[in-house]
Amino acid sequence: MDIALYEPDIPQNTAAILRTAVCFDAAVHIVGPAAFDLSDRATRRAGLDYAATARLKRHTSFDNFKSAACGRIVLFTTRGTASLEAFSFAPDDTLLFGRESAGVPDAVHDAADAQVRIPLAPGARSLNLAVAVSIGLWQALSTTHQLNPKGPS
Results as ranks from 00 to 15, higher is better:
Gly71Asp: 04
Ala51Trp: 02
Pro33Glu: 05
Phe89Asn: 03
Ala34Ile: 13
Val133Met: 07
Pro105Thr: 03
Pro152Trp: 11
Phe87Ala: 05
Leu95Tyr: 01
Ala21Cys: 13
Val108Tyr: 12
Lys66Trp: 13
Ala102Thr: 12
Asp25Trp: 05
Ala26Lys: 10
Asp2Tyr: 02
Phe62Cys: 01
Leu120Trp: 00
Asp49Asn: 12
Thr14Gln: 11
Ala107Ser: 14
Phe89His: 01
Asp92Cys: 09
Lys66Cys: 10
Cys23Gly: 15
Gly98Ala: 02
Asp113Gly: 09
Ala111Tyr: 00
Arg58Ser: 09
Ala102Gln: 08
Asp25Tyr: 02
Tyr6His: 12
Thr53Met: 04
Arg19Ser: 08
Leu127Ser: 09
Lys66Met: 04
Ala51Phe: 02
Thr94Ile: 07
Ala27Ser: 13
Ala15Gly: 15
Ala16Ile: 06
Arg72Pro: 03
Cys70Gly: 12
His29Phe: 11
Leu120Asn: 00
Ala34Asn: 15
Thr77Asn: 00
Phe89Glu: 12
Arg125Thr: 11
Gln12Pro: 13
His109Phe: 14
Asn128Leu: 10
Trp138Glu: 01
Lys57Trp: 00
Asp37Lys: 05
Leu5Glu: 12
Thr81Tyr: 08
Ala51Gly: 08
Arg58Leu: 14
Thr14Ala: 09
Ala42Val: 05
Met1Gly: 06
Thr78Leu: 06
Asp106Ala: 02
Thr60Ala: 13
Ile73Trp: 06
Thr94Ala: 00
His109Cys: 06
Thr53Asn: 14
Phe87Asn: 06
Ile3Val: 15
Leu141Asp: 06
Val108Leu: 07
Gly136Val: 07
Ile17Phe: 11
Trp138Gly: 09
